[in-house]
């Protein structure tokens, strides 16, 4: 690729690539922030439902036989349309198994990924979880001896973060275009200016080198280097070596 074009393409390419990278990374960071924020919101609801179960446990009612629990879960689901599912698990030995809920049979084990999240941070107050429907939190239900005897999983629809995320992405795209396009247009003459001292006389030095080589091959006397011009870096680098080359004795031995 020609120097001028290569410099312009490189400059604009790197600028556009950087803008895309900045946009994509900011979008990903923002998504992660939204998930944390919505998890925190969900946690407020989850904690209040969990407290109801904990109070029942304190009164000696086990999770599985606490009839009022399902009513609280249903009320919470009805008043929070973003919550996709609330699943209650009771410990049975080393495992946690689900209480029945629509579409899920009694005794279904805790998903492996959620169990791993617990395993990673055994003492956590909650664990962020996700499945194909969305993301949410898993909170422990402790008895009066502070022993975890059950879990409640809250899953919210992944689409809850879509609207703020799309708004943010649209903002990124618009501001990216507002910054990148004028800057790219500005960068074209700037990039050319940057290499102008080089490219201005590059063709004439290229032609000279070709003529020189052709003269040497044909056994003719090589031509004189191009006339020196102010600010010609190639002239400063090449004129004298070419003169020295032209003066070499036949056979090309060193002319020290």
């Amino acid at each position: 690729m020609r120097v001028k074009l290569a410099v312009v393409v490189s400059a604009v390419g790197v600028l556009v690539g950087s803008a895309l990278a900045i946009g994509a990374l900011n979008s990903l960071y923002f998504r992660s922030f939204l998930i944390d924020t919505y998890d925190a919101r969900l946690l407020a609801t989850a904690t209040s439902v969990r407290d109801v179960y904990a109070e029942a446990l304190a009164l000696g009612v086990s999770i599985g036989s606490f009839a009022g629990g399902q009513r609280v879960v249903d009320e919470t689901l009805a008043s929070n349309r973003d919550i996709e599912e609330i699943a209650v698990y009771e410990s049975q030995g080393a495992q946690y198994v689900a209480l029945p809920r629509p579409g899920v049979g009694l005794g279904e084990p805790l998903p492996t990924a959620w169990a791993r999240a617990m395993q990673r941070e055994p003492g956590a107050q909650f664990w962020p979880i996700s499945d194909q429907r969305g993301f949410g939190v898993l909170v422990p239900i402790a008895n009066t001896f502070n022993k975890t005897v059950g879990l409640i999983a809250f899953i919210q629809d992944a689409r809850v973060i879509e609207r703020p995320r799309q708004q943010f992405d649209r903002f990124l795209l618009e501001s990216g275009l507002w910054i990148t396009v004028p800057l790219a247009i500005l960068l074209v003459p700037l990039a050319i200016w940057a290499v102008l001292p080089l490219v201005r006389l590059l063709p004439s030095w290229g032609r000279y080198a070709e003529e020189f080589a052709a003269s040497v091959a044909a056994g003719r006397a090589p031509p004189e280097p191009p006339a020196p011009q102010g600010g010609d870096p190639l002239g400063e680098l090449l004129a004298e070596p070419y003169r020295r080359l032209a003066a070499r004795p036949p056979g090309g031995s060193a002319a020290r």
Partner: peptide, 22 residues
């Protein structure tokens, strides 16, 4: 020196553009 000048020109143009955008 001329070579260094060209290198600086390109760097100023490229990094300046990047910094303004960033």
């Amino acid at each position: 020196a001329a070579l260094r000048r060209i290198r600086w020109h390109v760097l100023i143009a490229a990094i300046g553009g990047l910094l303004i955008a960033g």
